[in-house]
Simulated assay, not measured.
Amino acid sequence: MTSVPMQNLSRREALRACTACLYAGGVGEAAGDARFLLLGILGLETRDLLIEGDRLVGADEAVALEAALARRLAGEPVARILGAWEFWGLPFRLGPDTLVPRPDTEILVEVALAAVPDRRAPLRCLDLGTGTGCILTALLSEMPQACGVGLDRSEGALRVARDNAAANGLGERANFVVGDWCDAVEGTFDLVVANPPYIAHDVIATLDREVRAHDPATALDGGVDGLDAYRRILDGAGARLASGGTLVLEIGYDQAAAVQDLARVAGYRERGLARDLAGHDRVLSFDRPGGLFSGHRDA
Rank of each mutant, 00 (worst) to 15 (best):
P289T: 11
S285L: 04
S3R: 15
A167G: 14
L273M: 10
V149L: 14
E13G: 15
D261N: 13
L69P: 03
A174T: 02
G245L: 12
P117K: 14
R162I: 05
L227M: 10
D235T: 14
A157P: 09
D261H: 14
G179H: 05
R271T: 06
A79F: 06
Y198P: 02
H214M: 03
G222N: 12
R282Y: 09
L38D: 01
L42Q: 00
L9M: 14
M6G: 11
G290Y: 09
A194G: 10
P96N: 04
A219G: 04
R264A: 15
P96C: 07
V224G: 05
V4D: 12
H201A: 15
I251C: 08
L15K: 02
P117C: 10
R12N: 14
G222V: 10
G169I: 09
P216M: 12
A266F: 06
F293T: 04
G187D: 07
G26P: 09
R119E: 13
V149D: 05
Q255I: 06
P101N: 09
N164H: 11
V109F: 01
G83D: 02
D228E: 15
S154Y: 05
V4K: 15
A112K: 08
L207M: 07
N175P: 00
R162M: 04
L113T: 08
A174Q: 03
V185P: 07
L99R: 00
T105W: 12
A114F: 01
R35I: 09
D48P: 00
R288S: 12
R269Q: 13
R124N: 10
R209H: 13
L136Q: 02
E86W: 14
R71A: 00
A278W: 02
F92D: 01
S3Q: 15
A157N: 06
G156N: 13
I135E: 00
L273D: 05
L94H: 13
L42E: 00
P197Q: 03
Y253H: 15
Y230K: 13
P103A: 13
F87N: 03
R153M: 11
V178I: 11
L158Q: 09
G272S: 11
A242W: 08
F176V: 02
V116H: 07
G226A: 09
A121C: 07
T98N: 02
D208T: 08
A184Q: 03
D33S: 03
L220M: 06
A266T: 04
P122F: 10
V248K: 06
C125W: 05
L82F: 07
E29P: 00
R47V: 12
S243Y: 00
D48L: 00
V259D: 09
P122R: 13
W85G: 02
D127I: 08
R282W: 09
G187R: 08
V193A: 02
D104Y: 12
V224N: 11
T98V: 14
D97H: 13
V109W: 00
D48M: 00
A14Y: 04
A112M: 04
T19H: 06
A34P: 03
A146I: 06
T19E: 15
R297Q: 08
P91A: 11
G28D: 14
L277D: 08
P289A: 15
I204W: 05
S294A: 15
G28T: 12
L50T: 04
R93C: 07
V203R: 07
G179I: 03
D163W: 11
Q145N: 12
A161R: 04
G169K: 07
T2I: 08
P196H: 04
T98I: 03
S294P: 04
E142D: 02
